[in-house]
Amino acid sequence: MTADSEFKRRTVLKAGSTAVTATFVATRTATPAAAAQTESSVDITLRVNGHDHRLAVEPRVTLLDALRERLDLTGTKKGCDRGECGACTVLADGRRIKSCLTLAVMRQNTEITTIEGLARGDRLHPLQEAFIRRDALQCGGCTPGQIMSGVACISEGHTRSADEIREWMSGNLCRCACYPNIVAAIQDAAK
């Protein structure tokens, strides 16, 4: 087994535990964009937070815009739309990706986890709890991305020191600048 596949297996196993149910959600037409199909639209199924969503999107629609404007999953934020700020971070098969840099049509057969899928009912994920306890958020604009990135940072094992966390969390910008509190929250949740 290569190091890479081992890495993948571990992250998949950890993230998989957050999404085990297999309920099916009918095609959403909640948003005007979801209703607006054009000739170039294709039918796809996205598996998000354990639910399958059928939707028709043009191939150019990013995963981020599919989540936000079609599926009304607006917890994932758009900060820059070009992979620079990290606000749109989600987990794809357990690995953190920037959802603005991938197309929805490319992410079929992928287990997507967004911020809405992290808590189990009323019980918050330990990192969500730690963010509140450590005041690792202010305006909340970057927070969903920080938490998704932090969950992956922990599952990757990049939490051996505060400096290692700082380095591996530097792809997520926080303009209110809660960085030391974010590091503390990740340290708490990694224990």
Partner: peptide, 27 residues
Amino acid sequence: VERVDGRAKVTGAARYAADRTLPGMLY
């Protein structure tokens, strides 16, 4: 005291302006 809006912000439940979609809305 911990932020009272913390839970809404760490779960993605907090709705910001860009998160609003209305029926018949144009972009």
